[in-house]
């Protein structure tokens, strides 16, 4: 079921536990089409865990969520078709070249390999297309990970500290990607340490602390704040 016009992302009481520790508790929020939401918070506040649960990399321990109307757990493959997740680590294969990494991604995503050369040019890696990733700097690896993300033409971006390791041109590139998805009616969740980093693209900011929503500033839509005591058992 694909619900156009409904929220891009809908979370209801989402929680995730690692052993006995709750990394996320009762997260309830909506993200509307075209909206770019910043997630800020201290280390261990649950920012990255939230993105990983939405990406379906982690199962929620409690609560539910939908991406474009697709249930996070029951329709995980459909959810993955819509999301583009840029994690901390680039997740590349060191012994493959930049082009080969994208060939693999294209085949797994089911997209044409003809998109690879222009994508590499767009992220500024055209000159290094035949070089193995092992020799890439952290910033180049990050650009290649961004290229892989672009190839999937995602409608919901999940970006975990996307500006890390990027020079000013790289930061512009990230903002361009976000704006491109937004202008196509998609949305983005952007995890940031410093809320000033993404001020040019963010519509609102949600602050997490110890796995719960502490604050939502510049709110575009109502956000339910769930108290820490309402932890699902």
């Amino acid at each position: 079921m694909s619900n156009f016009g409904s929220p891009t992302l809908k979370l209801r009481g989402l929680a995730r536990r690692f052993g006995t520790r709750w990394a996320l508790r009762g997260i309830t929020m909506d993200v509307e089409p075209g909206e770019v939401v910043g997630i800020v918070g201290h280390n261990g506040s649950g920012k990255s865990t939230l993105l990983r649960v939405i990406s379906t990399a982690l199962r929620a321990s409690a609560g539910e969520g939908w991406v474009f109307g697709h249930h996070l757990q029951r329709e995980a493959v459909e959810v993955r078709r819509h999301i583009g997740f840029l994690a901390h680590a680039p997740g590349l294969y060191d012994d493959l070249t930049a082009t080969e990494n994208l060939i693999f991604a294209a085949r797994m995503l089911g997209v044409s390999e003809s998109t690879i050369p222009p994508t590499l040019e767009r992220v500024g890696l055209g000159h290094a297309r035949d070089e193995r990733v092992r020799g890439f700097s952290a910033g180049m690896q990050r650009r290649l990970a961004l290229a892989r993300l672009i190839m999937g033409r995602p409608r919901l971006l999940l970006l975990d500290e996307p500006y890390n390791n990027f020079d000013p041109q790289g930061i512009e590139l990230v903002n361009d990607v976000i704006q491109g998805v937004r202008s196509d009616g998609g949305s983005a969740l952007v995890v940031l340490h410093d809320r000033r980093q993404g001020e040019r693209v963010l519509d609102r900011i949600i602050e997490l602390g110890r796995g719960v929503v502490l604050d939502a500033t510049n709110e575009a839509k109502p956000l339910t704040l769930v108290p820490a005591t309402a932890v699902p058992s």
Binding site: T56, V77, R80, A87, Y93, D94, M108, L109, G110
Partner: peptide, 18 residues
């Protein structure tokens, strides 16, 4: 280990495939 070395297991699991 090929997947774990570059933290590539998670991206592999996130491709829209069964």
């Amino acid at each position: 280990q090929l997947e774990l070395d570059g933290a590539a297991l998670e991206p592999l699991l996130l491709y829209p495939a069964p």
